[in-house]
Computed example of a mutant assay.
Amino acid sequence: MRLSELDYDLPEELIAQEPLARRDEARLLVLDRKSKSIEHSRFYKLVKHLREGDLLVLNDTRVLPARLFAQKESGGRVELLMVRPASPAEGPAGAWLALIRTHRVLKENARLLLGDGHVLRVAGYARPGRPIVVAEGDTSIEQILQLDGTLALPHYIHHIHRTVGPADIDDYQTVYAARPGAIAAPTAGLHFTDDVFKALADAGIRTATVTLHIGPGTFAPVRAIEVESHTMESEWYTIPPATRAAIEHARRIGGRIITVGTSSTRALESWAITGDVEGFTGLFIHQGFRFKLTDAMLTNFHMPRTTVLALAMAFAGRDQLLAAYREAIRHRYRFLSYGDAMLIL
C-alpha cells in the first residue's frame, strides 16, 4: 500500500476545535459494509443500530496530565511529554520514557527544573529522541504529574498553547475512564453518556472494557512510502477476565463484538494473535489484515496518513471508507478528536 493511498482532502474548517455541549448529540454516520449503504444518524440513537446480544468493548484508559514545562540549569525552556514508566530493562525504578522539545539535544544527566522546585534528570536514552527521565528527591514522577502536569491536547486543536483548564480536563476524558496511563484520549468513546449506556443496557446490549494506554505509537504519522514498512511504537494493554468471559458469551449467543475505537480494536486483535492477555503491543493494522475478533467498529473520522486511518481502511475497505468520508465532508461532519462518529457494520 502506497502512502498516497492514505490521503484525502480534509477541509481545515471541519476539524472540530471544541466538543459539543452534549456529547451524545454528535452526528453518527452508519456504514454497512455488505450493502454499501450509508445512513446519517445521531450518537444518542446508537442503540437503534445495534441488536440484543451485541457487546461493545471500550478502552477504559485515563488520560494523564502528562505535559510538563521546565527549565535547563542554563535557563533554556524545555517542554516534556511523559510517555510511560520505563521497563526494568529500559531504566532504573521510577524512571519514565519521555518526549522532549528543546533547541538542543539534552546530554545525559542534564537537570530540568520545574517551577515548584521539583527537579528531573535525564538518566539516558532508550533510543535516539526518547530520553529516560528520573525525578530527584522523594517525589515520584507520577506525583509530579498530578501536581504540575497539564493535558497534551492534539496539535490540531489550536487552543493548545493556552492554559488548559478544568473544562478541558473533563472534555478530553471519557465518562468511563478508570486506569491512568494514556497521553491521548480514546476519542471514539468521548461521545458516550450515562443516558446512552442506560439505553444500551435496556436493549440487552452489554459493555465490557479493555485497557490500552495510548502513546506516541497511535498518533505518530505514517511516513514510509510503503505503508507496510511503518513501525508502531509499542503500547501497554490488558484484557480483563470479565471481558474475556463477556466475549465468549456474546459469541455463544450470536452477538457481535463491536470495538469502540481503534485502540480497543488493537488490544483485542493483539490478544487474538498472541494469546497474551497483557503486555506491550506494536500491532499495526493495515490493508490485508484479517480481523479475528472485531465484527463491527465505532470510530471517529481520522487524519490523513495516520495509523488509525489505515486501521479503519483495513476494516471497511479503502474505497468504501473514503466514499463514506466524502459523504461526511459533503454533509459537513466534524472531524478528528472532538468531531463526530462513524459506526462500521
Results as ranks from 00 to 15, higher is better:
Met1Cys: 02
Arg2Tyr: 09
Arg2Asp: 14
Ser4Tyr: 06
Glu5Ser: 09
Asp7Pro: 09
Tyr8Gln: 09
Ile15Phe: 01
Ala16Arg: 09
Glu25Cys: 10
Arg33Val: 13
His40Asn: 10
Ser41Val: 00
Lys45Tyr: 02
Val47Gly: 03
His49Arg: 10
Arg51Cys: 13
Glu52Cys: 10
Leu56Thr: 08
Leu56His: 13
Arg62Gln: 13
Pro65Asn: 12
Arg67Lys: 15
Lys72Leu: 14
Arg77Asn: 15
Arg84Phe: 07
Pro85Lys: 09
Pro88Ile: 15
Pro88Thr: 13
Pro88Val: 10
Pro88Asn: 07
Gly94Tyr: 02
Ala95Gln: 06
Arg101Ala: 08
Thr102Gly: 07
Val105His: 01
Asn109Asp: 14
Asn109His: 08
Ala110Phe: 00
Ala110Lys: 02
Gly115Ala: 14
Val119Phe: 02
Glu136Ala: 04
Thr139Gly: 06
Leu145Ile: 12
Leu147Asn: 11
Asp148His: 13
Gly149Gln: 09
Thr150Ala: 15
Leu153Thr: 12
Tyr156Ala: 10
His158Leu: 13
His158Val: 08
His159Met: 07
His161Val: 01
Thr163Gly: 12
Gly165Ile: 11
Asp168Gln: 02
Asp168Pro: 11
Asp170Val: 00
Gln173Val: 02
Ala182Phe: 05
Ala184Ser: 05
Ala185Gln: 09
Thr187Asp: 11
Val196Ala: 14
Gly204Val: 03
Ala208Asn: 06
Val210Trp: 06
Thr211Leu: 00
Thr211Phe: 01
Ile214Ser: 02
Ile214Ala: 11
Ile214Lys: 02
Gly217Trp: 07
Thr218Trp: 10
Pro221Met: 15
Ala224Tyr: 05
Glu228Thr: 03
Thr231Leu: 14
Ser234Phe: 08
Trp236Tyr: 14
Trp236Ala: 05
Pro241Phe: 08
Arg244Ile: 04
Arg244Ala: 11
His249Lys: 15
His249Ala: 14
Ala250Gly: 05
Ile253Ala: 05
Gly254Arg: 11
Gly255Cys: 13
Ser264Val: 05
Ala267Ile: 10
Ala267His: 06
Leu268Gln: 07
Leu268Trp: 05
Glu269Asn: 01
Trp271Tyr: 14
Ala272Cys: 00
Phe280Gly: 05
Thr281Glu: 06
Gly282Tyr: 01
Phe284Cys: 01
Phe284Gly: 00
Gly288Trp: 09
Gly288Glu: 02
Arg290Asn: 12
Asp295Lys: 00
Ala296Lys: 04
Leu298Thr: 05
Leu298Arg: 05
Leu298Val: 10
Asn300Tyr: 11
Pro304Trp: 09
Leu309Tyr: 12
Leu311Phe: 06
Ala312Met: 11
Phe315Lys: 07
Gly317Ile: 06
Gln320Trp: 10
Leu322Gln: 06
Glu327His: 15
Phe335Tyr: 03
Phe335Cys: 04
Asp340Tyr: 08
Ala341Leu: 08
Leu345Gly: 03
